[in-house]
């Protein structure tokens, strides 16, 4: 009976109550920040005494915020390209290759996902000190690529495992070159996997804080680093407006994902 919603009796309301409270717990802080970003109070009093766009104006008027956002975007875009490209090649080897230690290789590829990020951040920071890569776009891209690649490989190997290779073989039998068959038959068929890999890679880089804190220099900061350094000084409502913009961006991406998924299904 416990797995039939309608037959739970009084328990139904307890469960629904807990779920509603938890959902509110998850949602309210985000709405709260959005509300405060339009509030006039410097001290983030809630409910705000009056409404204003002042914090958004300050955000857009400050070149340091805009520059940080642009840096974030550039790095995330580069990470996406490399992550999908390298991940696609690696996935072909993992799914189709027949060599010893394939499982071990896959485990190695996924390890950056489970390693505490702070350990990797400190290790790369030390390494980049010697190479002079701290505070460069290259350094950022490499660091983010290491943590984004596992998500990309997971998404693409999943798609590739679900793709029947005999279709590609059929294309080759019909006269396509192996490379042509891959590009014109296999890649379109695993498009949803490539898309997920791209989105995950982009978001991993775009939202990443810990590696970025270590890679950043006073002249090269990503948006999360800028928020971090500002937060350590005070709780200014400008951060609320920056956060709200980030949430909006997230919602847009989620809608894009939903739309594309629908497109792939039909």
């Amino acid at each position: 009976m416990l797995l039939h919603f309608e037959r739970l009796g009084s328990w139904k309301w307890v469960l629904v109550g807990i779920t509603a409270l938890t959902t509110a717990f998850l949602l309210l802080p985000i709405l709260f920040i959005a509300a405060l970003s339009f509030g006039s109070s410097q001290w983030l009093i809630f409910p705000p005494p009056s409404w204003t766009l002042r914090w958004y104006r300050e955000f857009f008027a400050d070149p340091r915020w805009i520059e940080a956002a642009w840096t974030s975007f550039k790095i995330a875009a580069l990470v996406t390209v490399f992550s999908v490209g390298i991940g696609l090649c690696a996935s072909f080897a993992l799914v189709r290759g027949r060599f010893k230690g394939r499982e071990a290789l896959k485990a190695l590829f996924l390890t950056p996902m489970i390693l505490p990020v702070v350990v990797l951040a400190v290790a790369l920071y030390a390494f980049f000190l010697r190479l002079g890569l701290n505070g460069t776009v290259t350094g950022f891209v490499i660091a983010h690529l290491v943590v984004a690649l596992p998500f990309s490989i997971l998404a693409i190997t999943n798609a590739l495992e679900g793709f029947d290779k005999s279709i590609e073989d059929a294309a080759v039998l019909c006269g396509a070159s192996p490379l042509e068959a891959k590009f014109r038959v296999t890649l379109p068929a695993i498009g949803h996997g490539l898309f997920s890999a791209a989105i995950f890679s982009f978001l991993t880089s775009w939202d990443e804080v810990v590696l970025a804190i270590f890679m950043a220099s006073p002249t090269l900061q990503t948006l999360p680093v800028r928020i971090w350094t500002t937060l350590r000084q005070d709780l200014t409502p400008v951060i609320a407006s920056a956060s709200t913009l980030l949430v909006l961006f997230t919602i847009l991406l989620m809608m894009l994902v939903a739309l594309v998924r629908k497109g792939f299904k039909s």
Binding site: L26, L27, I30, D207, V209, S243, L246, T250, L253, M254
Partner: peptide
């Protein structure tokens, strides 16, 4: 939405 919202936010 909560999961995808920036950690710092």
């Amino acid at each position: 939405l909560s999961m995808w919202t920036n950690l710092l936010a």
